[in-house]
């Protein structure tokens, strides 16, 4: 597995548990989808007077067989996704690139960063993973600009380094001795 390595990814690596987590979450989603479709088919056949329940054994075997195939395919896809997941904090820009088949790449200047926030969903809690979001003000950057599936240490490290860089870049052009806005200049 050739991993799209960058300085940042070396320093704050993605966790391999991310592959497992993603595989499990999408398999669950597919399982629910299959159950719904299966339910609809059973209902339709049942109302048409067919004896749907006589095929119960085949249905269950088919369901788990299909789910197993989906599991394997998703696992392979997620491995691939993991391998091409690229993020790099260059001196001037944040660059994130993901998607093995249809690559999407986003580049944001540090000055445009609105906030850095870290979150976990339920499966992330099980696996001890964190998502670091670093969006700018636009909606599409909010959708694209996040680094998913890093461990606690890396998440903290990324947060620190991002905030430090943003502070430096924004503070660069500020007047250091500007009067405090809360004190009136007349008093």
């Amino acid at each position: 597995m050739q991993i799209a390595q960058s300085k940042t990814r070396e320093q704050f690596p993605l966790s391999y548990r991310k592959i497992i987590k993603k595989t499990i979450s999408s398999t669950i989603a597919y399982a629910i989808l299959l159950l719904v479709i299966g339910g609809i088919i059973t209902f339709t056949l049942g109302s048409a007077g067919q004896e749907a329940f006589s095929y119960l054994g085949i249905t269950i075997v088919g369901f788990f067989g299909l789910l197993f195939v989906i599991f394997i395919l998703t696992y392979l896809y997620q491995r691939w996704y993991f391998a091409v997941y690229f993020y790099d904090l260059t001196p001037d820009f944040i660059q994130i690139k993901k998607g093995p088949i249809t690559p999407r790449e986003i580049t944001i200047p540090y000055e445009r960063l609105q906030d850095v926030y870290v979150d976990q969903d339920l499966l992330d809690r099980f696996f001890g993973l964190y998502d670091v979001h670093l969006s700018s003000a636009t909606a599409s950057s909010g959708m694209e600009a996040h680094i998913d599936g890093v461990e606690k240490q890396s998440a903290e490290g990324l947060r620190e380094i991002l905030l430090e860089t943003v502070k430096q870049r924004i503070g660069k052009n500020r007047f250091t001795n500007s009067p405090s806005p809360t004190t009136s200049p007349l008093s």
Binding site: P103, R104, I106, P109, A137, T138
Partner: peptide
């Protein structure tokens, strides 16, 4: 004032060796 620069490739872009560039401001 630019907020970000995107380079995206859809499936058909990939087939034809194309890419689309999107630039955002606010």
């Amino acid at each position: 004032r630019l907020q970000g620069v995107f380079v995206n490739q859809g499936l058909f872009d990939r087939i034809f060796g194309l890419a689309s560039l999107t630039i955002e401001d606010f």
